[in-house]
Each structure stands twice: as structure tokens, then as C-alpha cells.
């Protein structure tokens, strides 16, 4: 039996009097994918940013199973420790690839950055690893020295994923990873994420408003409204038999193609 990877209790974030997200509790196991859905302004991104340590939460605890010291509260960690975590065991895939990439650095350099950040100092090895990862995200290795500005939106998103996964993280935060891409590119990207998650036994937390994305990727699902989690459970269970009125509305709002 593997150990719990992430344990969240009573997480709350307020913007003045307004609620960002309130009293969120869940846990995550290695290899598990958690989906978070909800309408715009429901607190999905706030929650994700709090979990990833990019925004400071007001209340609550987030315990992460570190490699060396076991379960540790990430909010109590020192900043160097948390930043170290965010470039080794964690990864963050932004909705807009431009936020997650260095646009003036070649694709190879983008992939290699995390390796160099954790102390890799051998050009040949960094280069080989970059070639390997570009291949894994279906970017031809003749493009390794091109800058991301010369890439299409889908390629940029795949490059961002390669750049994040190259250090073998255990937990990936994804904020609308397929947003802004056309449907066929979306499908390929989802396919890719799914196979990478399987292969690397990754855990992931995926924020999206697209129910098809969670249906395909997520094992479990949380539905958020006005900062609160209104329903959670196995993905198929929540989507096929929604209990909360808001979830019912959400599920019935999807256009059947």
C-alpha cells in the first residue's frame, strides 16, 4: 500500500471580505488524478495557486509527502525549501504556455532549465535529455534550437509539459491545460497527458471548466461553487449521478455534439 501524497485540511483564502475558496478538504494518493471543476470565479484557480504555494492561504494545512522528511506542511516550509520543491517534486502547467515558458530561450534550453536548476552541469547529458523529452511530447528534434515563439499553440503547450516533467516530479498542478486550443489539438494533448500520467505514475490536480477533460483524465472530481466544494467523488459517479443542484445544472449545460 503506497502512502498518501497530499493531505489538505480546512484550506481557506479570503480576498478581504470576499471568499476565494473556503474550507477545502481532500487527499491525494500517488498516481491519482484529481479534477476540479466549476464556473468562472468559483475559486478553482485560487485553490490551485494556494496548493502550489504561489498564493498564501489564510487558514488550513497542506501536508505533502516529501522524499526525505515524510509528510510536511508546505505552508510552514521556508521559502527556499518550497521553491526547491516546486522545481523538483512539483510541476505547474499554466493555461497560457507563455506564462510557463521562457519565450526568448530555445526549446532545448527551456527543457534543460530545470535540470540545470537542480545542478546538472554536463551539456551533452542535458541536451540528450531534452531531445528525449521533446520526442516524448511529439516535438520533432529538428526544432530543438527554435524558440517557442516559432511554435504553434499546441506545440507550446506540449513544450511546457516537457519542461515541467523533465525532472520527474511526483505532483503536477494543471490550470486549464487545454484552454484556448482547438478540439483536435486538445484531444492529442489529453491523450499525451493521460499516457504520461500512467507511465510516470504521476499525481495531478487539474483545474478546468471542461467536463470532457475531467471525464477523460480524472479519477476523482471536486465541484466548486462560490469558493466552496459542493460535491466530490469518483468522476463517473459525480458526472453520471449528480446530487447537488449546481452539479446537475453543470452536467445538463453541456451541449451534446
Amino acid at each position: 500500500m503506497s502512502e498518501l501524497l497530499l493531505d489538505v485540511t480546512g484550506l481557506s483564502k479570503y480576498y478581504g471580505n470576499r471568499i476565494g475558496c473556503a474550507d477545502v478538504n481532500f487527499d491525494l494518493w500517488p498516481g491519482e488524478v484529481m479534477g476540479i471543476v466549476g464556473e468562472s470565479g468559483s475559486g478553482k484557480s485560487t485553490l490551485l495557486n494556494c496548493l502550489a504555494g504561489q498564493v498564501e492561504a489564510d487558514f488550513g494545512e497542506v501536508f505533502f509527502s516529501t522524499r526525505s522528511e515524510g509528510m510536511k506542511d508546505t505552508f510552514q516550509m521556508s521559502e527556499p525549501e518550497r521553491r526547491m520543491l516546486s522545481r523538483t517534486d512539483w510541476a505547474f502547467v499554466h493555461q497560457n504556455a507563455r506564462d510557463g515558458l521562457r519565450m526568448n530561450v530555445s526549446a532545448g534550453g527551456n527543457v534543460g532549465e530545470r535540470l540545470m536548476a537542480v545542478g546538472s552541469r554536463h551539456y551533452g547529458k542535458i541536451r540528450n535529455k531534452a531531445v528525449d523529452w521533446l520526442e516524448r511530447v511529439e516535438i520533432h528534434n529538428s526544432r530543438i534550437d527554435d524558440r517557442p515563439t516559432a511554435f504553434s499553440g499546441g506545440m507550446q503547450q506540449r513544450l511546457q509539459i516537457a519542461r515541467n516533467l523533465v525532472t520527474g516530479p511526483r505532483l503536477v498542478f494543471m490550470d486549464e491545460p487545454t484552454g484556448g486550443l482547438d478540439v483536435s489539438v486538445q484531444a492529442r494533448l489529453l491523450d499525451l497527458i493521460k499516457s504520461l500520467v500512467r507511465e510516470m505514475n504521476l499525481s495531478a490536480i487539474i483545474v478546468t471548466h471542461d467536463l470532457a477533460v475531467v471525464r477523460l483524465l480524472a479519477d476523482r472530481l471536486m465541484v466548486m461553487k462560490d469558493g466552496y466544494v459542493v460535491e466530490s467523488g469518483l468522476t463517473d459517479q459525480v458526472l453520471d449521478d449528480p446530487q447537488h443542484s449546481y452539479t446537475q445544472l453543470l452536467v445538463s449545460s453541456v451541449l451534446q455534439a
Binding site: G109, M116, R121
Partner: peptide
């Protein structure tokens, strides 16, 4: 690490 990204870019180019 970023400083080495600059040197990496040099070698790759």
C-alpha cells in the same frame, strides 16, 4: 540554474 541556461543557449547556437 538560469545562468547556465544562457551558456547552454550559446553552445546550442
Amino acid at each position: 540554474g538560469l545562468m547556465h541556461v544562457k551558456l547552454y543557449e550559446d553552445i546550442s547556437r
